[in-house]
Design a binder for these strands. Structure first.
Lengths: 207, 207
DNA sequence: GCTCCGCTCCCTCTTAAGATAGAGACCCCA
DNA sequence: TGGGGTCTCTATCTTAAGAGGGAGCGGAGC
């Protein structure tokens, strides 16, 4: 008999952890060895248990999914991480995947798909649901924002004026305008408010 | 021996349903009799099973939580509904509660609290987590938007200009401005973009 | 070396947004 | 019948936002 796939779960909702745990433990070929409720705990439990697969929610307290992926891959570059989240328009997905997460799933995925994904990832085979793959391709074509533009966008989304943004970033109002204009162009928006709507839909910002 | 509390679950995530079901079925005094994955199904299953308690996610495909609460209470005014959702800034909560939902919980609630809530609601006792109760009190003090203002706000959030909003609502631009101004005042925002941020935080709009 | 790009700053100009104030029509309710 | 609230429209005024340019400077890569 093969050894079981050892799984660590990380999700801030006890209900979701219970659901996943029940699902996994019913299978003959896998078992849950630990559960984490936030990002820091997730990293600690990874180090302690060195599981075959880590199932990770993107949105978590203390340290979000992206940071956890980064840290875990520092600890073990061959770690097999399966991202699982609610949102499908999320920029963070791409960051995780390009950083080396092996798979990505939406929380509304059927049971069978979740188990299939865990098995795939445990064997070091990438798994990405088709819906996500399609989004990824769409995203490729679109221009990406620079770091500075993302900072500005964040402030714009909070409703700050150009003058206010300039003050907070220690630049002139004119420069703030330049950034805002670049953002509008890249996001194909007419006004800052539309830019916020578009950015939110794409998961560039989290309100 | 008392009869078990009969529970119907409605949530669009299979994982969450599994988690709740496992949790409930482990208890001696309750059992899950049906599970729904969307709003329409939730209503159908309520009618068929007439459960003692219905656990309901607010965000669901086809028909959202608010509409389900409304319909179920039409069918049975004494229905015991427990709302369960991820978001805590949500206007919909108050609509549900004021419409007659018996309880409200956040999804990150610990297991014990969830079970306590189900038992309370089954005995027709209201249950609201303290975090939500606090929010409810806060909200009471704040001015509420009129129907028209909500329509305008929705368009503002999409990034529409006053002129565009006026065209869509068949009013003049001046009137659109009047509405926007009223929104800014009520939400205590300086600009339309900030108004969108505030509205989103309060759950007045869903982007 | 050079070029590309991100970041910064500057200018002008037009238009949209927001502040302020006043007013008529409607409907519901006391 | 007389408010009170909603929705509508009017007008004027100030300021912020956005369009359209150009330009210097630093770092990364060819």
């Amino acid at each position: 008999m093969k050894p079981k796939i050892r799984v660590v779960l990380a999700d801030d909702h006890p209900v979701v952890r219970d659901g996943l745990a029940a699902m996994v433990n019913q299978q003959a070929d896998m078992e849950v060895v630990a559960e984490a409720g936030d990002g820091d705990e997730a990293i600690a439990l990874y180090e302690r248990h060195r599981p075959d697969v880590m199932v990770l929610d993107l949105r978590m307290p203390k340290r979000d999914g992206v940071a956890v992926v980064q840290r875990v891959l520092e600890i073990n570059p061959k770690a097999c991480i399966l991202i699982m989240t609610t949102y499908d328009g999320d920029e963070d997905i791409f960051q995780c995947l390009s950083q080396g997460a092996k798979g990505y799933l939406l929380k509304d995925a059927p049971r069978q798909e979740i188990l299939t994904a865990i098995r795939a990832v445990s064997e070091d085979r990438p798994y990405t649901s088709s819906a996500v793959a399609a989004k990824a391709l769409q995203r490729m074509a679109k221009p990406s924002l620079t770091q500075r533009e993302l900072s500005v966008l964040q402030l714009v989304a909070q409703g700050r004026s150009n003058k206010d943004i300039a003050r907070r970033l220690s630049i002139t109002e004119g420069t703030a305008k330049t950034h805002v204009k670049a953002i509008l162009t890249k996001l194909d928006a007419i006004s800052r408010t539309e830019a916020v709507a578009v950015a939110h839909k794409r998961g560039l910002i989290h309100l």
